[in-house]
């Protein structure tokens, strides 16, 4: 009973907040609805028994990605009139996308009711008592090791690319060298001078 209630609660909130993402007038509100949608999607993941994926969804998407979204959106100065001006111009592309997505859903539902393809039998079924972190770990580090490391490399390249694209060497900026500051002693900075009266100080 409680599972059904929880499922319908999470599912309804996901759908509603997803709708609010595109209908909300304030972009910050949109991002917040998106976060609510992520959060409830994580709830759905818990219900299907994928608690690891659920936690990852919250940590990565809600905790990091959405924070950055929110960051950027809050600092943007968005002109709503200009945003809505392009509506008619982009309508055809939007319609094409919408039709495409609807078709995909139809095909997906059709394929699902035709019965599953026999992919899952290639992997030995995992004992239900094994926590799914362990199950995922076992697959990732054995069977899919090459794919996993490939994904890691792609991410590394993306990271380096982002740094290379945005990095600029600034000239004329005095930079701090923390190690040098810490290593500095008073005798490097202070000089005792027995200054004779009536003469200027030599620096």
């Amino acid at each position: 009973m409680i599972q059904a209630v929880a499922f319908y609660l999470f599912a309804a909130i996901v759908v509603l907040s997803a709708a609010m993402v595109i209908t909300a007038r304030n972009p910050v509100h949109s991002v917040l609805w998106l976060i609510l949608a992520f959060f409830n999607a994580a709830g759905l993941m818990v219900l299907v028994g994928a608690e690891f994926i659920a936690m990852l969804l919250v940590i990565v998407y809600v905790g990091a990605v959405a924070v950055l979204f929110l960051f950027v959106v809050m600092m943007l100065d968005i002109d709503f009139a200009e945003l809505r001006a392009g509506f008619v111009k982009y309508l055809p592309i939007g319609v094409v996308l919408a039709v495409g997505l609807a078709a995909e859903i139809l095909i997906g539902v059709g394929a699902w009711s035709a019965g599953g393809i026999e992919l899952s039998t290639r992997i030995a079924p995992i004992d239900a008592a094994v926590p799914n972190i362990e199950a995922i770990g076992r697959l990732l580090y054995t069977r899919y090791l090459l794919v996993f490391e490939g994904a890691g490399l792609v991410l590394l390249v993306a990271m380096i690319g982002a740094i290379v694209l945005t990095h600029r060497e600034r000239t004329g900026v005095i930079k701090q060298n923390i190690a040098r500051q810490v290593a500095r002693r008073s005798k490097d900075a202070i000089r005792k001078v027995n200054q004779p009266v009536g003469q200027g100080v030599e620096l």
């Binding site: 976060i35 608690e51 690891f52 936690m55 990852l56 919250v58 940590i59 809600v62 905790g63 990091a64 924070v67 929110l70 926590p131 972190i133």
Partner: peptide
């Protein structure tokens, strides 16, 4: 729960909101 530490991490990452 068996993802206790991840739960801690997830919940503390929400605090920023």
């Amino acid at each position: 729960i068996n993802v206790g530490l991840l739960y801690v991490l997830a919940a503390s990452s929400l605090g920023v909101y």
